[in-house]
Design a binder for these strands. Structure first.
Lengths: 195, 195
DNA sequence: TGGCGTACTGTACGCCGTCCAGCTATATTG
DNA sequence: CAATATAGCTGGACGGCGTACAGTACGCCA
């Protein structure tokens, strides 16, 4: 508890504890308050101690972002590929909204962690099940992913719609679904033809 | 040129010059290098001088973002509304890519400046011309805007596609267009029916 | 029991955005 | 043309940031 500790004495800090503390700090006080110094203080430790567990702040953020996607399930085996795709993307969307402060980071920094890659594989697999492969599949994947993250980013930003913040969440959620359906229809429709 | 100037002597700095300098610095050395101190040095001025022309760094960025959209034209009077909508969004997309470093800022900070509002009015007008009004129009506007900005953000991020950076630009540009067409088709298709 | 790896510390460096008080070149007024 | 107000610019500083370096003392294993 007390950070006043003689050198060499251990606080029993682990990498996981650092990440958990960062998540808590993020949730409670926002992205702007997530500073290495504040995180250290919350953990009862000097700031530089964090660097024994994390490469630097960027790496920490990247890991947080990727972890946020861990709750998204893998695609089920037998359902219709379009329904499944909708479910998968919608789950991702919800996962992002559950950690609103991280969304701008996601967009800004890219996120190529294991969870993001897993999600990519899932989408690709579903597309293949629907007969979409190769370059069109990569196209579709890109469109879906960025639409989802982009939408989440806007949902998270204050002041975008002029309506009451009450309606806002509901209305935006519906809007996301609508756009997603349009995209899925386009993907499915372009499956055979076009050039 | 020489910032070594006795107090009171004027550098002839204007608000426009500050913005222009910021744009140049951004283009040459990236967002990370756009610091009030660096900007001041480039302008031959002490850092605090900037605050005589700009409220703070946030305001400066916001203005830069909005200005980037100034090159997007208003919709023409007589063309097909879908073609026109495509042209408008595509122009916005290109405008954003012309200032890549600003895209993350756009998404992160929101951008409600005059240019953004003008663009919003243009889109709304075109949608109305196609018979899309009210809540569906707001939905469509949101989807189009965030798709465009979101896509630009991903295009700007390094390392997203696994291909050569050469093909990348071309392929991504085509992907943007494809997705945009899907969305426009969905918007036009949902015009009369659906629930 | 002794040595070693390492979690942790004190301290400090070089950045950052921004504020305050003062000075003076310029614009404004008579 | 002289007196005054305005406002552009400065030196200097404050508090905060991420992070590096070198040292210390604990826990573990031989």
């Amino acid at each position: 508890m007390d950070p006043r500790r003689t050198p060499g004495q251990r606080a029993g800090l682990t990498r996981g504890a650092v990440l958990a503390g960062a998540r808590a700090l993020l949730a409670e006080r926002g992205l702007g308050a997530l500073t290495m110094r504040a995180l250290a203080e919350r953990l009862g430790v000097r700031p530089n101690t964090l660097y024994s567990h994390v490469a630097d702040k960027d790496a920490l953020l990247e890991e947080l972002v990727d972890d946020a996607l861990a709750v998204v399930p893998d695609p089920a085996g037998d359902a219709d590929w379009r329904d499944e795709l909708h479910r998968l993307m919608s789950a991702s969307h919800r996962a992002l909204l559950a950690a609103p402060e991280l969304v701008p980071v996601t967009l800004g920094r890219g996120s190529r962690g294991p969870q993001a890659q897993r999600l990519g594989r899932g989408v690709t697999e579903l597309l293949a099940r629907g007969g979409v492969t190769g370059a069109p599949a990569r196209e579709a994947l890109r469109v879906l992913v960025l639409y989802t993250i982009g939408f989440a980013a806007f949902e998270v930003r204050p002041g975008f719609p002029d309506a009451d913040p009450d309606e806002r969440r509901t209305e935006l959620g519906g809007t996301y679904d609508r756009g997603l359906q349009w995209l899925l229809a386009g993907i499915a429709g372009g499956r055979t033809g076009s050039g």
